[in-house]
Simulated assay, not measured.
Amino acid sequence: MTATYAEHSARKRRPLFRRRSAIPGFAVTMGVTITILSLIVLIPLTAVALKAAQQSSSEFLNAAFNERALMAYRLSFGAAFIAATINGVFGLLTAWALVRYEFPLKSLVNGLIDLPFALPTAVAGIALATLYAPNGWIGALVAPAKVAYTPLGVVVALTFIGLPFVVRTLEPVMRDLAADVEEAAASLGASRFDVIARVILPALGPAWLTGFALAFARAVGEYGSVIFIAGNMPYKSEIAPLLIIIELEQYDYAGAATIAVVMLVVSFAMLFVINAVQAWARRLSA
């Protein structure tokens, strides 16, 4: 009798009509996801790795780690890291100003943030090279320091294309961060520095790291906006994507694939570390 009563209670709690979802079930969505991911990401990357594996070990090492390639890796990853750091600082300040303050021409500034998304990279590179050339508007002002056709010009171009990633990643989190929390901390005797260090930055930490990772990943593979301002001097201002193009123009497809594989492995490793730090920061802030 007890079992009958339990079954009757469970039957009453069971909904009469199952709520239908607008999105298909897990099997369908996961199948579509894996298919698209394989076609767009996994299969092309596997093909690049297989092309590089056609070489002998000595040929692979020579193509991947010769002096010219090492200098190109150093410039690409180093400039991308510096640019992402700069964007992390100024992107945080920009997002804070856009979210927390009202000022004239705010809509115009907000629109200009997205300009690197819409502007063709080649156009951005030509514009930056024109501005920062020795006879350009900005280049003439900072003379005798040289920006265009130097590694510094690479950093400028990568900073330009990476800023929107940090700003747009931080904006939603800042909008959800109520000003009441800061006021409560201040009412309890916290100084401005304590509010920033213990209230604001821990809440923004995971989003900031996400924006940093996106800006870094975007900068590592950037090509169009860099080649016009870099100068493309071997061993000095030559980026790794340009070196891949040069290898392809010389019909050295295996060598180009080798450089691409090295960049892929290093990028994955750095993104893995950034994601691990992001997860650690999220656990601390929880």
Rank of each mutant, 00 (worst) to 15 (best):
L284H: 12
R218H: 01
L50G: 10
A184G: 11
E182K: 01
T258N: 03
G231H: 05
Q250D: 15
P164T: 03
V48T: 09
L201E: 08
G91Q: 02
P144E: 05
N62F: 12
R198Q: 14
L37G: 13
V273G: 08
E59F: 09
F212M: 00
T150D: 06
A52L: 05
F77C: 06
N87A: 05
G255A: 02
G91R: 00
I244N: 03
L39C: 10
V181N: 15
K236I: 13
P206L: 04
A124Y: 03
I40N: 05
A219Q: 02
I86M: 04
A197M: 14
F77S: 08
G231D: 02
S9F: 15
N232M: 06
L248A: 06
K146E: 12
A52F: 05
A143Q: 11
L177V: 08
M1Q: 13
E171W: 07
Q55L: 14
R175S: 10
M263Q: 01
A219E: 00
A27S: 14
L105S: 10
L98A: 08
F90M: 09
L108C: 06
I245R: 12
A279K: 15
I244C: 01
A22F: 15
G78Q: 04
K146H: 11
A69Y: 00
M233G: 10
G125C: 01
I40K: 07
E7D: 15
A80T: 03
L271E: 01
A230L: 02
Q250A: 13
L115H: 01
V262M: 00
S9E: 15
E222S: 04
R100E: 04
L115F: 05
V220L: 06
S21K: 14
A276I: 09
W137V: 14
E249Q: 12
L119G: 04
V220H: 01
L163Y: 01
P164W: 02
I200R: 08
L248H: 05
K12W: 13
Y223I: 07
A184I: 09
G221K: 03
L61C: 10
Q278D: 07
G153E: 00
L16Y: 09
R14V: 08
V181S: 13
R74P: 09
A276V: 11
L271W: 01
A69Q: 03
A83E: 04
L112F: 11
G211V: 02
P241K: 03
A49S: 09
G153D: 00
A72L: 03
A281S: 11
F216I: 00
I34A: 12
V195M: 10
K106A: 07
F26D: 15
F77I: 08
A72V: 06
L177A: 07
V226I: 10
A197K: 15
R68A: 03
N275G: 11
L128S: 02
L243G: 04
G91M: 03
P44D: 07
F81H: 08
R20F: 11
A215K: 01
F193R: 13
S191W: 03
V99A: 00
V199R: 02
G125L: 01
I82P: 02
V48S: 05
A6Y: 14
N135T: 13
T121H: 12
N135W: 12
L188A: 06
I86H: 01
Y73F: 07
I23Y: 13
V265I: 11
R192V: 10
A179D: 15
K12N: 14
A256K: 00
R198P: 10
Q54M: 13
K51L: 14
P15S: 05
A22W: 15
A179P: 10
S107R: 15
P202G: 06
